[in-house]
């Protein structure tokens, strides 16, 4: 895996050949601005549907293991 990544990053090094000092970044190719939504509530998913795919749930909530000591970064 490491070898694959290195070869890909080596390949990507070729971009440094280009002088992009005065070039703007392109993040979006769509020539319009943000779409805005009116502040009107719409029904979402029922609790049942929201939890339908949960690996574990209880009392309407998603159940997850606790952070155990020494895990916090």
């Amino acid at each position: 895996m490491r070898g694959h990544l290195d070869s890909i990053l080596d390949y990507a090094e070729q971009l440094s050949e280009l002088d992009t000092e005065d070039v703007e970044v392109t993040t979006h190719v769509v020539p319009v601005s943000a779409l805005l939504r009116d502040d009107i509530a719409q029904p979402g998913l029922s609790n049942e549907l929201a939890l339908q795919n949960a690996p574990a749930s209880e009392g309407g909530a998603f159940q997850v293991p606790k952070v155990i000591d020494g895990e916090a970064g």
Binding site: A12, L15, T20, V23, V25, T26, T27
Partner: peptide, 12 residues
Amino acid sequence: AYYRKASKVRTL
């Protein structure tokens, strides 16, 4: 070096 550079080359 990578993400930002690529975003600029995208413009080109």
